[in-house]
Nucleic acid binder design. Structure first.
Length: 329
DNA sequence: TTCCGACAGTGGGGTCGCAAT
DNA sequence: ATTGCGACCCCACTATCGGAA
């Protein structure tokens, strides 16, 4: 039955991945993809090429990334389609960089498609992952700088190349990517659900930090700690350099314990040698730089080398503050 | 009974626009 | 002109609760 050529297919909520708890799954039941650092987006295309891009929270990205509309050209052969993928900002070397996406200073922007939910009159939500992937491979974007089909690797494919999942993770690290997503080969697509069929394995770095201050929390965290101000020593000058804040990863018990330990260390002035940005410093309580904690972070910000996507792990009473140096990675 | 998924609420980084200074 | 603030966007994490197992 013919549909209006400009009819864009109905929206489908993106399926979400579950954190894998640090255990990278391995075995023939799984397939592996790189985890892209960008904006998750569903791309819906009408037979005539009319395109609608929607974010995870159903916000419209169509006008924000106009270069992605119609980028598939004739590749769909006049069929309607619904694709799942990631909008990624690329630097001048073609490498994905989330920071560029946020401050809107990208060199180029591309849509990395990793799933197909609908093509022509057919819906593939119930088709196994592997089958959807085969169908997706059948689409050949005319300009891979604009729309690309991301690679995927069955466990067996990796083995043939003498590679293990851990080896692929090393590849992701070398390419400065976000990590891996492990997908069950036979799994169907569960719209809007956070499913264990998709397991995300982010590359995280663990580092030790000196606690130089804290800001009070709000709402449920009223009366306790909202965020900790972090630092580490410059190995050359020995200065305590401001590294950013951490405001997540605490249990209630941790917050209570920290509060009790930090109160006796309060002082009037910032212990950091460099200036803490005004909005970070507002309302801050400064601390004698003695306590050491452990945080995980995704990467360092390009300009000032601060920690990005930081989460608290716990105190390191075994470490001395003076030993803590700025992470170099 | 235990476990898991959905939800709400907190925090981070960022941009944008408006009002107060 | 600058600053403060809240509204957005993305994200991660914890606490809670109700229903499934």
């Amino acid at each position: 039955m013919p549909e209006p050529a400009d009819r864009v297919p109905a929206a489908i909520e993106p399926m979400l991945a579950t954190p894998d708890g640090g255990t990278l799954r391995a075995g023939p039941a799984y397939a592996y993809e790189f985890k892209w650092d960008g904006y998750r987006a569903i791309m819906r295309i009408a037979p005539d090429g009319t395109t609608v891009l929607t974010s995870r929270n159903d916000n419209d990205f169509t006008t924000r990334f106009p270069q992605l509309s119609g980028a598939l050209g004739e590749a769909l052969g006049g069929r309607a389609a619904v694709l799942d993928g990631e909008i990624v900002a690329l630097d001048e070397h073609g490498r994905p960089d989330f920071g560029l996406l946020q401050n809107r200073s990208w060199h180029a922007v591309a849509y990395f498609a990793f799933d197909v939910l609908r093509l022509g009159g057919e819906t593939f939500l119930d088709a196994p992952y592997e089958e959807r992937r085969e169908i997706l491979s059948g689409i050949e974007p005319p300009d891979r700088q604009l729309v690309a089909i991301t690679p995927w690797y069955r466990h067996g494919d990796l083995a043939e190349q003498g590679l293990t999942p851990a080896g692929l993770l090393d590849v992701a690290r070398k390419m400065m990517l976000e990590g891996l997503v492990v997908k069950a080969r036979t799994s169907r697509y569960h719209p809007g659900r956070r499913s264990p069929d998709w397991l995300k394995h982010p590359l995280v770095h663990t580092t030790e930090v000196v606690l130089g201050g804290w800001r009070p929390g709000q709402g449920r965290r009223e009366g306790t700690i909202g965020a900790l101000l972090l630092g580490a020593h410059d190995p050359e000058s020995g200065d305590l350099r401001y590294l950013g804040d951490v405001g997540t990863g605490f249990t209630d018990a941790m917050l209570q314990d920290l509060q009790a330990r930090l109160t006796p260390l309060e002082r009037r002035t910032s212990p950091f040698a460099d200036a803490v940005p005004r909005d970070r410093a507002r309302g801050a309580h400064w601390l004698e730089p003695e306590m050491v904690g452990e945080v995980v972070y995704r990467r360092l910000t390009p300009g000032d080398g601060r920690l990005r996507h930081t989460a608290w792990r716990g105190l390191r009473p075994d470490r001395k503050a003076v030993e803590i140096e700025v992470p170099s990675h």
